[in-house]
Design a protein around this nucleic acid. Structure first.
Lengths: 262, 262
DNA sequence: AAACGCCATTGATTCAAGTCAACGCGGCGT
DNA sequence: ACGCCGCGTTGACTTGAATCAATGGCGTTT
């Protein structure tokens, strides 16, 4: 695996002095480790399926990683030895044709679970769209817990079904929407994931795009030129404001939704 | 639900005389019901997760349905009261935009499981691409068994992950392949599902397309004219033979694969 | 501060696939 | 036998997005 740009903090690593994190992960009776209590994955993610003792055990085997923008997490057709929870940032899942054409087939936000159970090597690549922090576990530990705790498998099933719904939603976008509709749909999807409050109710929403123009093109099956042109069109029509390349403000969520084709 | 064109054989239905099927489903000790023993779903499908007693119980609650080509199984945003195994035929999963544009987001072959656990109403439509036979169960029975038998949830997870892999594979096709590559990929996928032997090893493979030109277009994000033209091109190039509208012979599987873009 | 690289935008032109239209073929009802 | 209808094919033309090419910020290096 290309570990370029990946900083790893192992909680099992012998530290010069026991730091706060280290202590936070030690199991006390069967209450959850302090670090996990504050973790999104503990509540909305797969760790919610575990009891205090299991959580402590998993936490002991886990380590945090901070991955910088652009770094590859999993190569295509690579043997994968660990699973992770996304704690922050955005991970892009990609597929590449032999001649280099690329398609982003999914985006993962906190607290999504990253990994493909029941398959030795992955059929997709994963890389950090933004700086990403992960809580990673050895494959074997997670797989043993899946057998011991059916609730965990239930969570994974729920996430897999949600991802399947998402993937099928994007199949419609890829297959049947125009470039303009694709861009509108994309902005709405990002807004809903990054700034859910604003995107749901409010008229305006402001956020940083987690993807470059090139990534957006690879996600929507377009070229960067078309992405750029459609964004300027939305800007000229007063639907979005482009603060700078990355920062976008949706001036009118309802009008944007009207251009998404559904 | 639109039951037009759906013939239902209930195994709980009081028959004028106990027929073979009826007797086959009665539980004897804990050996599997005779009907299930011969069923593909018993071996490769989700029923493989159940023991003899559970299988007998599920079989008692099940009923067979034969659905004719074109009939709708599940409407979009419809409340779904049952799950099914596909025993034969092909089910198409569709999504439709408000203005009528349609995208087929998946195809299900025997012995796939049909249904979306953990969600009250479906977000996709399902209809019979060919004549389809289903083994259907009440939602509640399956959901209880999922709780009692984690193996069942494991099977569903595996199928969901496989479907997710398929969906992502098609996202690449929809987003990044040319019309010619889309058609080649489609023919290969169908061949692998319908005539796996021939498609894998042999040089030629022969099968009936389970979809109309219009369905193929909706699956690949193309128009029927483009589908027709690309098929003609493959025929002129001697890669396929079009026996009649439905029946296709792949003259050279390797050459076809060479045109699929991957 | 000049030079470079990277990312994004904008304009001019091309082309793959869509649209519109005509026609062919086979099954079905009258 | 006839006309009709649904499905598929083929041809002529149009168009939306890709391609090719030039230019503009902006941060980093020298």
């Amino acid at each position: 695996m290309a570990f370029a740009g990946i900083v790893t903090y192992s909680f099992r690593m012998p530290a010069s002095r026991p730091n706060d994190d280290e202590r936070a992960l030690r199991p006390q009776s069967d209450s959850p480790p302090a670090l996990c209590t504050a973790c999104e994955a503990r509540h909305r993610g797969v760790c919610g399926a575990l009891d205090g003792e299991q959580l402590a055990e998993l936490a002991r085997a886990s380590h945090l990683q901070v991955i910088e923008e652009g770094a590859e997490l999993i190569g295509d057709a690579e043997r994968v030895e660990s699973y992770s929870n996304v704690l922050s940032g955005v991970v892009k899942l990609t597929k590449t044709l032999p001649d280099g054409r690329q398609q982003i087939v999914g985006l993962q936000f906190a607290p999504d679970f990253l990994g493909r159970p029941f398959r030795e090597e992955s059929t997709i690549g994963a890389s950090a769209a933004t700086t990403v922090s992960l809580c990673s576990f050895p494959k074997s530990t997670v797989e043993r817990m899946m057998r011991e705790q059916p609730q965990l498998e239930n969570r994974l099933l729920r996430q897999a079904l949600d991802e399947l719904d998402d993937a099928r939603e994007w199949m419609v976008t890829l297959g049947r929407k125009t470039a303009a509709e694709k861009i509108a749909s994309f902005l709405l999807m990002i807004a809903r994931n990054i700034a859910p409050r604003a995107a749901g109710a409010g008229e305006t929403a402001s956020f940083d795009l987690p993807l470059t123009r090139s990534d957006i093109a690879d996600f929507l099956g377009l070229t960067i030129e078309t992405v750029s042109r459609q964004l300027t069109k939305l800007r000229i029509d007063g639907i979005i404001r482009i603060e700078n390349n990355r920062r976008i403000t949706i001036e009118n969520v309802v009008r944007l939704a009207g251009r998404a084709g559904d």
